[in-house]
């Protein structure tokens, strides 16, 4: 009887110790590759420059812009209100609070859209949500918003409306001062009558 007791006890100890040698399962928060692959099919991850411009102008509080270019580029020019997280620092724990939030739409942008998309893929793989990419990046921003091209005279009304919006946005982003044309002061015209030099003296 005692022997059985010892045997069971030894078995439990061995099994319990065996648990220590099970392979460690790594971070399960990561999005599975096939899911990430499926996420990439549709184009909803892209937002257009017009949409971003509109949301900046409307001071949308749920918009959060992240510039993934280097600090030098960021210092030179960036979108108003954008934060700078260079791509090489994306995984650093400093920025985790920025990426883990759930209430804001985070829009990545760079000069083109390659770096922004790479940042998007890494952030999504880590299981964070609400990320978008500004389609075309800053190059496209300057072509469409800052220096919009006037559509052909045969273009549709929609295109002209878009052009109007972009023109307005361009003024908003490049300084926003309204320039009034110089005031034209109309001079009062005073009619001066000629004095008759001589009094009409008598008739004939």
């Amino acid at each position: 009887m005692n022997l059985r007791y010892i045997f069971f006890a030894a078995l439990l100890v061995v099994l319990g110790a065996g648990l220590f040698f099970l392979p460690e399962k790594t971070n399960t928060n990561e999005m599975a590759p096939e899911k990430l692959h499926a996420e990439l099919f549709d184009q909803t991850r892209y937002v257009s420059t017009d949409e971003v411009a509109e949301r900046i102008i409307n001071q949308d509080p749920s918009l959060f812009l992240i510039d993934v270019r280097t600090a030098d580029y960021y210092a030179e020019y960036s979108l108003p209100g954008a934060a700078n997280i260079p791509l090489e620092d994306l995984l650093s724990p400093n920025w985790e609070d920025y990426l883990t939030q759930e209430y804001m739409d985070v829009v990545f942008f760079s000069n083109g859209d390659i770096y922004a998309e790479q940042a998007w893929m890494l952030a999504n793989r880590m299981g964070y949500k609400n990320f978008y990419i500004m389609k075309g990046g800053l190059n496209c921003w300057f072509e469409t918003i800052i220096k919009p091209v006037k559509p052909e005279s045969t273009a549709s009304n929609n295109e002209f409306d878009l052009y109007k919006f972009r023109n307005g946005a361009s003024q908003y982003f490049t300084g926003g001062e309204l320039i009034l044309s110089e005031e034209i002061v109309a001079e009062a015209i005073t009619v001066t009558r000629k004095k008759k030099k001589t009094v009409a003296s008598g008739g004939c």
Partner: peptide, 22 residues
Amino acid sequence: FVEEPKYNFLEIMESMAGGAII
């Protein structure tokens, strides 16, 4: 090289500062 800036952003912004062209 799509990630290179196509334009000099700073220069454009400075040249356009102040709104419309008079």
